[in-house]
Design a protein around this nucleic acid. Structure first.
Length: 911
RNA sequence: GGGCGAUUAGCUCAGUGGGAGAGCGCUUGCUUCACACGCAAGAGGUCGCUGGUUCGAUACCAGCAUCGCCCACCA
């Protein structure tokens, strides 16, 4: 039989669903709104497994809620991903012998748009391939016209509210990307370097000196003080004296600073270079020190002004060199002048650009910032309050991430939002050339104006025609673009039409669930919360579901350079989308990472095939009358599967409500395979054999109904195969997508049927076990015996005798035989008092060897039982246990004890 | 340095204050009329170590070890 082939099925239904508009959500619908906004994938390339996981989980939620009757809206989109995308396109240009500079800004941006059109399309196609049921009519892009309007609105409002400002600040500067990076875009890496001990002589008394330790000797040219600890007896008398700065003619003060200086570390004296170190910048503010920048935007030593007093020989030697080139030269100069005391190897963390791994320089330049800790309207505080307390507006799942988030938010600093690149939202600020003559002196060769910190920006929604102050019409726009996360931070409402008060916004904001991974909690989630609260006065979502990162089977992060990337498209081609989706859902246990091995996907591919074949069985047995009487009036095995299905429905719903995709998937897998297929289908064959019987009619109805329900239950996880099969079944409606999700009906469970079938299963398994252990050929049909003391249980076994015989491949079952000799026996406990023993005839046990095997098995079991009995007796004899254990536990152990004793007795009697 | 997480079967991982689980892999048998991407049966674990709490700990607490992640300026 050919196996299930997913490819044609997937192609068929995704276009069908979209054509019929099943993904569209109506803001005017009466149903409860349920909204999710997609974490927009970057347009830098194709989707990886992390995206597949992320979007599978969102689609499971959306399909589930849609079927459950909500007006479910899932908004798709993509992110322009500023620096990342610019880098991709620049690399392409480089391969063509072109460059961004040669092209010029406008042409370059056009070129990136071209790339975004291709890449964006590819990403959307991949999402569709995954089965994502997004409302494609609302596809958004973080830089399309509506989002540009939202960005401008947000920027202007924040500016006018005093929450955006320009500042000359140390920022993390990537000399290669030529742009500022936010703190979290810098990755620290342990790097081997050297520690230089440099002599700073006192101006008054050149025999005395301070020894300063540094890893970056070249920056001493920008030193404006040396700090010692005010309580350090070695140096505190020297505070306020001056030292001679090596290689220069400058005198700089010694200051006392208890914050910057750790007496225990190094020499106890620290050079302060406010323009090249973040701590030094703060110390410089405390002591009112000037800032001297020694680097240009390329990270090269810049020509020094006279006033900096740098030794002309040194200046001539190092100007225009990179830091790496200049350092050994500065070292040599210091050594020649006898001011380098020693050099040691030293390992320390060094900041690198997270995009290109270039060493990041703390660099002084004018930048735009969002003030997050404004005393009056603190964005950070509001975002903290939203997740704290007993009834927080936002809940993290798993909740462990809450503290992580809070810890970060409590020490958050102003957000540097300007980037010196070309791809992004250009900042809506303009400068009058006339009024800012002093601040607008330079223009770089590529035509980018350098806007000094003293320039006065005009911030407006639309480009102003002329300067409101002088009436001059020559205005130039700020060349910087916004950090890519600025537009992402508006995403939950910009995608709903904000700043316009649309119906969508009214209905679907706040959204319900954000599904994302922990690596962007700070980049993105925190900023959405801040902006959502600020602009909409309401948190942008109620639940943040944080899923794990996908790694390979060895736990390595997947990367192209390691060659361990599992491409979701390849997996979908190979195993089918449903199999991939089911795998990802089943592995989404709360935790930090998922190790994905391809074999797991193959395992769930088999599951899809199993489902396919089960459906084939049901369909080929559907001919004939179907008797859909109330469940309680149906025969045992039908009552049983209906009851088991009820439990599966309840378990699945409960797991989904708790975001336990893994548990939901496992319940469904287990029910489908181990209950429906392994047992129910086998049970059903008995009554189906008698085609025309009333029993067959009842079974046909139950088979069809329960399978159809199961398909609906599985649909959010495996949308394609379930649609395909559902369409083949008798059904009402156009698509399984828009059928109701099965809801548990408490009255539909049937404990009696479940207990009866449990006993039958135990007997069948017992016989199979015996046959297997004794090596009895499957074709050898022999009689079986059941010895059961409880009369009621005996009746139940008698009623199931034919079924047991068939499933255990026995010729017949005799209950409580009076005269036939039995030999091999297996004890089975059923219920509390009914004990039963199953046996095969003695004549089958021909060989002494088998007797020995059997005896050994029995002995092992007896030993086991005896040990358990002893343990339980000890427990039951324990007065403290009886006094303190909950009654149901005591009863449980008593029952177990009784059963074990009974079984032990049976085992001993039968030997 | 601070914080977080992990440690359970050969592998990847669930799980619980009261007799250790799943998938894959492995062993054995099976062309049983939906399915060999299958059916049936089985082997395999001192639940990282040491203490503590408890009548009872794999689970709760503390310490230790190993691994991983995040944050941090140690000049």
């Amino acid at each position: 039989t050919p196996a299930y082939d997913p490819a044609p099925v997937e192609a068929r239904w995704s276009s069908f669903w979209e054509r019929r508009g099943f993904f569209r959500a109506d803001p005017a619908a009466a149903a409860a709104p349920y909204g999710i906004v997609i974490p927009p994938p970057n347009i830098t390339g194709s989707l990886h497994l992390g995206h597949a996981l992320n979007n599978t989980l969102q689609d499971v939620l959306i399909r589930w809620r849609r079927m459950a009757g909500d007006a479910a809206l899932w908004i798709p989109g993509t992110d322009h991903a500023g620096i990342a995308t610019q880098n991709v396109v620049e690399r392409q240009l480089m391969a063509e012998g072109q460059s961004r500079e040669l092209l010029g800004r406008d042409a370059f941006v056009r070129r990136v748009w071209q790339w975004r059109n291709e890449s964006g399309r590819a990403i959307i196609a991949q999402l569709k391939r995954l089965g994502a049921s997004c409302d494609w009519s609302r596809e958004a892009f973080t830089m399309d016209e509506p989002r540009q309007a939202a960005v401008r609105e947000a920027f202007v409002r924040l500016f006018k509210d005093g929450l955006i400002y320009r500042g000359q600040r140390l920022i993390n500067w990537c000399p290669r990307c030529q742009t500022a990076l936010s703190d979290i875009e810098v990755e620290h890496e342990e790097t081997r370097g050297k520690m230089y001990y440099i002599k700073y002589p006192l101006a008054d008394d050149p025999d005395l000196f301070l020894t300063v330790a540094t890893t970056r000797p070249e920056t001493l040219l920008g030193d404006t003080a040396v700090a010692v600890h005010p309580d350090d007896p070695r140096y505190n008398e020297w505070i306020d004296k001056t030292v001679l700065l090596p290689l220069t003619s400058r005198r700089i003060p010694i200051v006392g600073d208890a914050i910057l200086v750790d007496r225990e570390f190094g020499t106890g004296a620290v050079k302060i270079t406010p323009a090249h170190d973040f701590n030094d910048e703060k110390a410089g503010q405390r002591h009112n020190l000037p800032k001297i920048s020694i680097l240009d935007e390329h990270g090269r030593i810049q020509p020094f002004l006279e006033e900096h007093g740098v030794d002309p020989a040194v200046r001539g030697d190092i100007t225009q060199l990179s830091v790496a080139e200049a350092r050994p030269r500065v070292e040599r100069w210091l050594r020649e002048r006898g001011q380098l005391l020693k050099v040691e190897d030293h390992t320390h963390p060094l900041g690198k650009c997270y995009r290109c791994r270039t060493v990041v320089e703390p660099y002084l330049s004018p930048q735009w910032f969002v003030r997050v800790n404004d005393p009056g309207k603190s964005l950070a505080k509001a975002a903290i309050d939203a997740v704290e307390g007993d009834q927080p507006a936002i809940r993290f799942i798993p909740e462990g991430w809450t503290n992580n988030y809070l810890g970060w938010m409590r020490q958050i600093e102003d957000w540097c939002i300007s980037r010196q690149i070309w791809w992004g939202h250009q900042i809506p600020a303009w400068y009058c050339q006339q009024c800012n003559q002093d601040a607008l002196l330079h223009t770089t060769p590529d035509g980018t104006p350098i806007v000094g910190i003293d320039a006065r920006p005009i911030v407006e929604l639309t480009p102003p025609e002329r300067c409101p102050v002088c009436g001059q019409s020559e205005l130039i726009q700020d060349p910087d673009v916004l950090d890519t996360w600025f537009s992402s931070a508006l995403w939950p409402f910009s995608t709903l039409g904000w700043p316009q008060e649309t119906d969508e916004l009214k209905t679907f904001y706040p959204t319900n669930t954000l599904v994302t991974s922990f690596d962007i909690i700070f980049f993105w989630v925190a900023r959405m919360i801040m902006f959502g609260l600020y602009f909409k006065k309401q948190a942008p979502f109620r639940t943040v579901y944080i899923h794990a990162l996908v790694r390979d089977a060895e736990g390595q992060k997947m990367s192209k350079s390691k060659g361990n990337v599992i491409d979701p498209l390849v997996m979908m081609d190979k195993y089918g989308t449903d199999a991939l989706r089911f795998t990802l859902a089943a592995m989404a246990s709360p935790g930090r990472d998922i190790r994905l091995a391809e074999e797991r996907i193959a395992g769930y591919r088999n599951f899809a095939n199993k489902l396919w074949n089960a459906a084939r069985f049901v369909l080929m047995n559907l001919d004939g009358p179907r008797d859909s009487r109330p469940a309680a009036e149906r025969s045992l095995y039908n009552r049983w599967i209906i009851s088991r299905l009820q439990r599966c429905i309840a378990d699945t719903q409960q797991a989904l409500a708790a975001y336990r995709f893994d548990e939901a998937a496992n319940h469904l897998y287990h029910f489908t395979w181990n209950e429906y297929c392994d047992w129910y289908i086998e049970f059903s064959k008995s009554s189906l054999n008698d085609t025309g019987s009333p029993a067959a009619a009842m079974t046909r109805a139950t088979l069809a109904e329960s399978f159809e329900t199961l398909l609906r239950l599985l649909h959010p996880f495996m949308p394609f195969i379930t649609e395909e099969l559902w369409q083949a079944f008798p059904h009402e409606g156009e698509s399984i997508m828009v059928t109701p999700y099965p809801a548990p009906l408490p009255g539909m469970t049937d404990d009696t049927a479940e207990q009866d079938v449990e006993m039958i299963q135990a007997i069948v398994t017992g016989f199979r076990d015996m046959r297997s252990v004794h090596g009895i050929a499957p074709s050898h049909k022999l009689p079986g015996f059941v010895i059961v003391t409880d009369p009621q249980a005996a009746r139940r076994v008698k009623a199931a005798a034919d079924m047991v015989a068939r499933l255990a491949r026995l010729s017949r079952i005799t209950v409580n035989p009076s005269d036939e000799p039995v030999h091999a026996a297996e004890g089975i406990l059923e219920g509390r008092d009914a004990r039963l023993l199953i046996a095969l005839p003695a004549e089958t046990m021909e060989l002494a060897q088998e007797h020995a095997k059997e005896a050994a098995r029995k002995e092992k079991r007896i030993k086991e039982l005896a040990a358990q009995i002893e343990r339980d007796e000890k427990t039951l004899a324990n007065a403290q246990f009886l006094a303190k254990a909950p009654p149901h536990e005591v009863e449980k152990i008593r029952a177990r004890h009784r059963e074990n004793q009974a079984e032990l007795k049976l085992m001993r009697e039968s030997s």
